[in-house]
């Protein structure tokens, strides 16, 4: 489902049009197309909801880009982890076992150079 800027404005009646433009200008919302001919996907609409709700939580313009950036990094990693899970899941049992063993070996606590310096090792 793709909507235009006017349709987006109608579905956020409480939101000032200039405010929405500012979010697009700040690249907090990144529609497709060019100014005057923007199109918004479901993910963009959901992101407008998210920003509205973050502002209700008193996340101001100073903090908002930081929160969005952290969220984008979190979701980026989750998205790639999902792709990886999917790829691993499609492997033969032998391969998945090999990966499992390797992951467990790497997850095991180690001494010396590999130890996490921030861990409470000793």
């Amino acid at each position: 489902m793709i909507i235009t800027l006017n349709e987006l404005r109608r579905s956020f009646a409480d939101l000032d049009a200039a405010e929405l433009d500012r979010w697009i200008g700040n690249r907090w919302i990144r529609p497709e197309g060019r100014p005057g001919a923007y199109v918004f996907h479901e993910i963009d609409v959901a992101r407008v909801h998210l920003i509205v709700e973050l502002r209700e939580m008193a996340i101001d313009d100073e903090a908002l880009p930081l929160v969005l950036s952290l969220l984008d990094q979190l979701y980026g990693v989750r998205r790639q982890m999902k792709l990886l899970y999917k790829a691993i899941d499609a492997q033969p049992e032998e391969v998945r076992q090999t990966l499992l063993v390797a992951v467990r070996a790497n997850a095991a606590p180690t001494d010396g150079a590999d130890a996490d310096p921030e861990g409470d090792g000793a």
Binding site: H41, E42, I43, V45, A46, R47, H49, L50, L71, D72, Y75, G76, R78, R79, K82
Partner: peptide, 13 residues
């Protein structure tokens, strides 16, 4: 409404 997380991990994320 749909939440952002429903799309962020998808193809458009």
């Amino acid at each position: 409404h749909s939440y952002y997380r429903d799309f962020a991990e998808g193809r458009n994320g």
